[in-house]
Design a protein around this nucleic acid. Structure first.
Lengths: 148, 148
DNA sequence: TTAGTTGCAAAGGCTTTGCACGCGC
DNA sequence: GCGCGTGCAAAGCCTTTGCAACTAA
């Protein structure tokens, strides 16, 4: 093989993309890495991060990449009511989310029950389930103190 | 009056509104009753139902009523990703939702675990929790058969 | 080369906001 | 009568869609 196999910092992202059957493009790598740095980022936040190193990257490309990642199972999409949707790298563990109804802040949290039994309904009613999501609504410490 | 039929839905709605500390107005009663007839209705669906008996009712009033109901704890709001938000009367039982990622259909379902332990996170991280929500994503029977 | 992606632009849908009039209390 | 809620209208935000040019494989 004639390819130069250099050890680029983008290697992790590229590998992940390839493994998921996605073409490796600069915007996608940038989006993937931005997600790694931002735990719960909105499409806009990702775009802002990507833009720092790639001024020409469009918001639509970010949406596109995020959508592709989600379809490929690389990313998990969460939707805080009343706020823009957020994305996070799917890291395998089945954690849930604490969402502030005031500012939209999101905090990861483990389920109280051991092996996430919440992820299996008693009756699927014929549905073909693909994923489950548990969300806790409330006020984050900052917003709670302001409200009080 | 002559409520020889079944129940008098108006009385129930009025009582519920008063009990919640809300003024009893025609649009609100109409919205409340529409919710009783429609298990999981979107603001638009509620508006359509309300309009049948109240042509002048505005969509904004419906949103307003729905928001007030939610704040008052009379109604529960659910947000299927990618679809308009839905509302349902809060009936006390802690059921969860099966949501079709294709058509947005929603089906009620009980949690597999007995007393809804899923509703209590292992660590609130300082958040003041007000509610919890469990959502199962997948394809409804109809969409699954079409996709297959 | 060939097909998948990007970038640019605009449209689309859902929800919220502002203000004068009317109704509930 | 007072104040909240309604109706009318418009704006706002986030997200999706369409198409020509480009780039990865």
């Amino acid at each position: 093989m004639t390819h130069t196999h250099e050890l680029a910092p983008h290697a992790g992202a590229s590998d992940a993309l390839r493994a998921a059957g996605l073409r490796v493009t600069e915007p996608r790598v940038a989006v993937y890495e931005a997600l790694g740095a931002l735990p719960h980022a909105s499409a806009d936040a990702v775009h802002a991060a990507v833009s720092e190193r790639m001024p020409r990257a469009s918001l639509q490309s970010v949406y596109n990449a995020l959508g592709d990642f989600t379809d490929a199972g690389l990313v998990r999409r969460i939707e805080p009511a009343g706020h823009a949707m957020l994305f996070e790298l799917r890291i395998g563990d089945n954690h849930h989310h604490l969402v502030c109804t005031s500012c939209g802040a999101v905090q990861d949290v483990d389920c109280a029950v051991g092996h996430a039994p919440c992820l299996h309904p008693s009756d699927a009613h014929g549905f073909t389930l693909t994923s489950a999501e548990v969300t806790y609504w409330g006020l984050c410490p900052a917003c709670a103190s302001v409200a009080a």
